[in-house]
Amino acid sequence: MKPSKGIYLFVLPALILYGIFVLYPAFYGLYVSFTNWDGLSAGYEFVGFRNYRNLLMYDTIFAKSVVNNLKFMLFVVIGQTTLSLVFALFLVRNTKANIALRTLYFLPTILASVSVAFIWAAMYDSNFGMIKAILGLFGVQNGPGWLADPDIAIYSVAFAQVWAHTGQLMIIFIAGLQAIPADLFEVAAIEGASKFQTFRLVTWPLIAPAAAIVIAYTTLQSFKAFDLVFAMTRGGPNNATEIIATFIYRLAFQSYKFGYASAASMLFLVFVAAITIIQFKLLRTDRTG
């Protein structure tokens, strides 16, 4: 029996809310991206593709923020995935000590990003920070400028992101590891496989779906790291930690260039979609091949 068409009425409330709060702002943002609206005035002009042309052809800060975002994403994805997997492998068994350690590693996840930012900004402080004090014990008086050196600042911020979220992803890996049947490891042991071979041939293929989730989640998370970056460095020094989200915020809310910022948001959307599609295809290939 085919369901009545009236059943579609049940999705109506959700559809309306989705339309109002997601689709309408998105399409309105697209419309604004073709204007020079300042976000305050009643009037604005339609400027066609000028905002997009300027962003793609001339805006050096936008280009820099894209590169910074890629650096940030790579560091976070590699660091967070590797560390969470390593911790999961060590803490997979449900002993009392392991459960206590899992709780400890999970704790940073419950902190707000702004709190994480303040904690690490204080740790990195070049004058009174804990890292400086520890390095001082080893005779290093003037250590690196963690947030002051444009060459390393983005990685310092990315490390704070890794610290905050590794515990959360470790839990996903532990769930994946605990779902692997124990007899597979027994067979591997009987066949004389080394620990590395067991990991490569048994563990990894079976936790690949969990890894795919972790990588996809981490990638999106690293594009949404606005609050952490903004609270730690506000994009400085000299745009060294400017990512696309902070760039857009600055344009819209500090420079009053909503039209231009909306165009940057649309490009951001395309950029994230492209990365997600590429990643999805790569991870699918890994799983089937």
């Binding site: 402080d125 070049s126 003037n142 400028g145 002051a148 050196d149 444009p150 400085g236 020094p237």
Partner: peptide
């Protein structure tokens, strides 16, 4: 002071 670009006004 060293690493002045990493120093906030409070410090």
């Amino acid at each position: 002071q060293p690493n002045s670009l990493g120093t906030g006004y409070e410090a």
